[in-house]
Simulated scan of single mutants.
Amino acid sequence: MIAKTPPPPYWAVIFTAVFSGKDGANYESMGGRMVELAHQQPGFLGYETAQADGNGEITICYWDTEANLRAWKQNDEHLEAQRMGRDVWYSGYSIRIVKVERAYGI
Rank of each mutant, 00 (worst) to 15 (best):
F19Y: 15
S20Y: 03
G21K: 13
G21Y: 02
K22A: 12
K22V: 02
G24T: 09
G24M: 14
A25W: 11
N26P: 10
Y27V: 05
Y27T: 02
S29Q: 12
M30H: 02
G32Y: 10
G32F: 10
R33F: 11
R33N: 07
R33H: 11
M34N: 06
V35Q: 14
E36Q: 14
L37D: 01
L37C: 09
A38T: 06
A38V: 02
A38F: 05
Q40V: 01
Q40E: 15
Q40C: 09
Q40S: 14
Q40G: 06
Q41T: 00
P42F: 11
G43R: 03
G43T: 01
F44H: 12
F44L: 11
L45P: 00
L45Y: 05
L45W: 01
G46E: 07
T49C: 04
T49D: 03
T49Q: 12
A50P: 05
A50R: 08
A50F: 07
A50Y: 09
Q51C: 07
D53K: 13
D53Y: 11
G54N: 07
G54S: 06
G54T: 06
N55Y: 09
N55G: 08
G56F: 06
G56M: 05
E57H: 15
I58A: 01
I58C: 00
T59W: 05
I60V: 15
I60Y: 04
I60N: 00
I60E: 06
C61L: 12
Y62R: 00
Y62M: 07
D64C: 02
D64S: 02
D64Q: 05
T65H: 08
T65Y: 06
A67P: 09
A67Q: 15
N68I: 04
N68A: 08
R70I: 12
A71E: 11
W72I: 00
W72C: 03
K73S: 15
K73G: 15
Q74C: 10
Q74A: 11
N75T: 06
D76N: 15
E77R: 08
H78D: 04
H78W: 03
H78K: 04
L79P: 10
E80H: 10
E80V: 10
A81W: 01
A81T: 09
R83N: 01
R83S: 02
R83I: 04
M84F: 10
M84G: 06
M84S: 04
M84N: 04
